[in-house]
Each structure stands twice: as C-alpha cells, then as structure tokens.
Design a protein around this nucleic acid. Structure first.
Lengths: 242, 242
DNA sequence: CGGCCAGTTGAGGGCGTTCAATTAGGGTGG
DNA sequence: CCACCCTAATTGAACGCCCTCAACTGGCCG
C-alpha cells in the first residue's frame, strides 16, 4: 500500500513508513489521527541520504518542503554580509528543518550534515494538497514552526549569560533532546566541533575548550574527544540556574 | 456587508475592516483573495485598546489567537528563572504577535504596550474554522510565523557584533520597518526606553546612551529625548556593514 | 518647588577575545 | 602498519570592550 512490499499491514518490518516509524511521537505525525498519518505517509519521500559535510539544502535555493531527520545530525547555517558562517541551530534525529524557507519560499539558511544522515522529505506542493484533506496537519506544522520561535527565545536568554553558563546549558539541552528520543541522556557523542559549538553559542572555540576542561576538573563531566559523559547533572544545572 | 455601515463599498471611511484597512499589505490579508479577506473580516475582533504599560497578554495565559497591531507599539517579554525581564522583540504598527503561544497553547511571553495601542484579534478557534474554507490563510499564517524565524536569525547575527554595530543596526531596522508602513524612514520616535533597547540588544543601558551620543558626535543622527533623526544613513550602514 | 525616574557621563575592573605556540587526532599513501 | 600531513583541540599570555558602580543632570508631574 505504501512501500515496495506488498503487505498492507502496518507491522511490516522492512517497510519504514510514518505509521511504524520510531519517530512517530516526535515527527510531524504526532497529533495526527491514524488515517491522517496514512495520508501523510503516501506523500513523504523517504530514505534520502547525505554524507558528512554534504548539504541537505543551500541558502538561496527554492524551498522544497519540510524535512525530518531520521538518523544523524545536521547544522543550520546562515551567512553574514562578509560571508562569515553563523551556526543557527543543530538538528538532532527526529527533528524537523526547512522552516527558514517557508516565508520567502527561498531558503536563507544552509543545512549541512554533521555525519551521515537519513531523512524524510515532505514536498512543499504536497503540503497544500494535504492541508485540504487533513486539517490536523496544518496545525501540527504551525505548531512545529512556532516551536522554533520558543527555541529562539531560549537562545536569546543564553546570550545574556556567561560563557560557562552557556556551555552548561548547551550540554544539558543536547542531553534533553537526545533522551526525548530514547538515547542515553548521560552519555552521548557531540557530533559537532568545538568551533561549531563556539559559533553557535557566540563564544570563541578556545573558550569552549577551556570551559569543558574546567567542567572536567570539577567532576561535572567526562570528555574523551567528542564523546561526552555527564557525571553530575545536578551540578551542571546548579551551574547556570543559580 | 461587513460592518455597522450599510455601504458595501471598500471606500467607506468610518468602518475600518480588513478590506479597507491601511495595513492590508502588511497584515494577515496580504496574499489572500478578496473573498478570503471578506471571510477573515467577519471573524476579526477590532478596536481593542490598551494604554501604555498595560499587558495585551501575559506569559502563562492560554493562547487566544493572533493579534495585529493597528497603531501604537509594544514589547514582547520573556522571563528567566530569576524573574529577570528579557525583551524578546518590539512590535510596530501593522505587525503580528501571539506566535509565542501557538506551540503549547500557553503564552511563554508577555506583551506590553509601549504607548496606547489599538489592535485586531483573530481568535484561535476561528482560525481552524477559517482554515477549512480559506486555504490561503493557512499558508499566510505559516509564512508569518516563519517570518519570525527569519527575524530571529537576524537577531542572532547581531549578537556576534560590537555594541556600536548593534545600535546602528537597531536604528536602521526600526527605520526600515516604519518606512514599510508609510512612516518617515528618517525621523521617528523611539517609543522604548534606553533600558529596553539595551535589554533587547544585550548591552547595558549606559552603553546605549554612550553610543547614541557617539553617533550624534559623528553627525550620523540627531537625538532629542526619544525623537530620532537619521542625518547620514549611509554612514550608519557603513558603520556595521564594513 | 521638590521628588522621582530616565538618561547621561566618568572611572575602574573583569571576562572573554585574540594571537601564538603546542599537542592530539584522523585520514591517506607508501 | 607506520610515517606523514593537516586540521582540530588545547593551553598560555596580554589586550580591549563592555559591564558595573557611582555621581550627576534633566525632564515630568504632583
């Protein structure tokens, strides 16, 4: 019904579709009825792959639709008038991207894979088709786009805090987002470089290094290259919440 | 057809409705067909008034719908865990607000009038009704909410720049937004305090004062209390674009 | 006229940047 | 499998921007 297999059962193993995707509580389908999800599944392009460093879309290219990361992570970049990169956001598995192209129908950000990614793609023209038959979708998309707004407010909060507080908050934020989709909340891999973290947080990459070192000295975390382990979550929280 | 007057003409003077509102190129109706605007007009609550300092909505209150400022300006506030105010945005006449409540259906920001404001209100439950009959509305709202995303990216850019660049950019940005809706782009009133500007830009209010003074000394602007006149726009632009 | 708050102006100190040097890590070819 | 290279990450030292604290001025309103 939906995939290369002939079975129409939603329990089919090999055919990954919206109905049996393990991201269904995080992705667009959350909040949709079963029949609406079915309709959505018909229109989604699945199994798009990009290798590390490759672009998912470029700033200046036409908006083609909303994208859901199934695995791997990515960074969202903008560029200032001098061509300097600004890391706008990191996108983790199960999260959506593409909203930077909705308003003007031209992307003003570039999305780059930080590691091999597999993503689903809901084409723009199909969104309109869907909107007619599935009123729920409109609201879900609206919610997701406004999620971004909430996230940006949080980000503004950070810009008012010290470098140490920013890094603590960054680590905890990544932890929360990963645990929400079933990964370990205390031990994970930071797929982005110190440079990219610093760019994102608005501090120099040397400062990121120094602070990570400091956190280790205080027994809050353990770091080995990109692998990170939170050993004192409360300590980290107290660090920026006081 | 739409208001208390009997005339159906869009040239009617006293009855302000979406069809003859001077904001129609900026507000929600932009991009909608004539009949869609008519339908919208039926559902909008007009002529809501708030005095300076009064709240349009509070953080924590349920989302009631999207609001369009017809006149006056407002500030959008968030609060950190210590209760400190963070100025998230300023809203000028013709601009929309309320998106901070869409995602969770609870506002996470507070909107306060900076001077007497008159606004229109599109109730949330009517948005759903409209979405069925006027597919264009969905897209327009989606666009507007994603506009906010674009704006936040611009804001992040600013946080990477010096205090002087931030103030220059702030002045030019307000100028642009005002000129877009027919006000003078070179001479206008800053309805917000130095404190609020500083809070918004992430710098101390003393720094705002100093920089405004500096810009005057360099003949870029003329300031008298809250009244501001741009005397060398190119100079201001060069100031942050180089 | 007095009080109050917004705005201005000055001085000093701190946090994070910048510049520079060194070490570690990851990928490639011999 | 190791030598090599190149980039990422770390660490150190000094400067500078902006914050903080403090005093003063100006405008508005009772």
């Amino acid at each position: 019904m939906i995939d290369s297999t002939t079975s129409a059962s939603s329990a089919t193993k090999k055919a990954v579709t919206c109905a049996n995707c393990n991201l269904d509580n995080l992705c667009i389908p959350k909040g949709l009825s079963r029949s609406e999800v079915g309709e959505l599944a018909l229109l989604v392009n699945r199994n798009n792959i990009r290798q590390k460093g490759e672009a998912i879309y470029h700033a200046g290219s036409p908006f083609r639709g909303i994208i859901a990361l199934r695995s791997g992570s990515a960074k969202l970049l903008s560029f200032d008038s001098n061509g300097n990169e600004l890391v706008v956001d990191f996108i983790l598995p199960g999260e959506l991207l593409g909203f930077d192209g909705v308003s003007s129908q031209i992307h003003n950000c570039t999305a780059i894979a930080l590691e091999t990614v597999n993503y689903c793609h809901l084409p723009a023209y199909k969104i309109e088709i869907l909107a007619v038959n599935t009123p729920g979708l409109t609201q879900v998309l609206m919610q997701r786009s406004c999620d971004q707004f909430d996230a940006q407010v949080q980000k503004m909060m950070l810009s008012r805090r010290s470098a140490e507080e920013r890094v603590a908050c960054f680590i905890l934020h990544i932890s929360d987002r990963l645990s929400m989709r079933g990964y370990s909340e205390l031990e994970f891999r930071l797929s982005m470089s110190r440079e990219e973290i610093g760019n994102y947080l608005g501090i120099a990459h040397e400062t990121v290094s120094r602070i990570i070192h400091l956190f280790q000295a205080r027994k809050l975390i353990e770091v080995k290259s990109k692998q990170l382990k939170i050993t004192d979550k409360k300590g980290l929280i107290n660090f920026y919440a006081n």
